[in-house]
Amino acid sequence: MITFENVSYHYSNAEKAAVEKVSFELEEGSFNYLTGPSGAGKTTLFRMMYMDMTPTKGRLTVFGRNVSAMSQDDISLMRRRMGIVFQDFRLLPHLTVKENVSLPLTLTGPMSQQQESCVDEIIDWVGLGHKSNILPGFLSGGEKQRVAIARAVVNRPRLLIADEPTGNVDASMGRRIMHLFTELNKQGTTLLIATHDRELMADCPAPSIIVENGRISKLHAA
């Protein structure tokens, strides 16, 4: 599903590469963690996966296609099959919780009744049913994170990549979110979660890809 072959990424204003000669593969339907110290390069790897930037060296394929050879529209269409949870949420401040969550479903025209209720259901699931008409500016960090998660899963993506999805929520909400993710994984969604949370990894065991200093140091079996 995703293949890194000797991928490096060097930010234009940085001294050294943030990611250096990384190779690994995510198989269809797999569930993996991506861990490593702060600044190791996890977000950089994610950004390449959701095609926010292309590798400066090496070859990266997503859904079987080389990301360096894709047009902006190809990228957009690819992203419709992906759910992305950003470390910094990226909600639209002028849209309500419900509108933010609905956004991926509105790209192909007005939502169906069924999609509407799906949106309500997912907002309920992340515990924000009573705040669905509120703007993100009035939410706490953890609540925003849950909106971001709801938006990422509302489309039932084939690939879900989540950057620290439980970084701002309490343990019980963390478990609830992990439960949702593993449920999706059981239904076939490929899952990659970046996290520092050892407790979470112990609760839901899965293989980990460990990044250090921009390199993959270990591939840990569950």
């Binding site: 529209d73 990228i75 992203r79 992305i84 990226r90």
Partner: peptide, 15 residues
């Protein structure tokens, strides 16, 4: 910012 977010969720230039 809005453009970027719309593109992250899969909005094409046509859309």
């Amino acid at each position: 910012r809005s453009l970027a977010v719309l593109q992250y969720v899969g909005a094409t230039n046509g859309f």
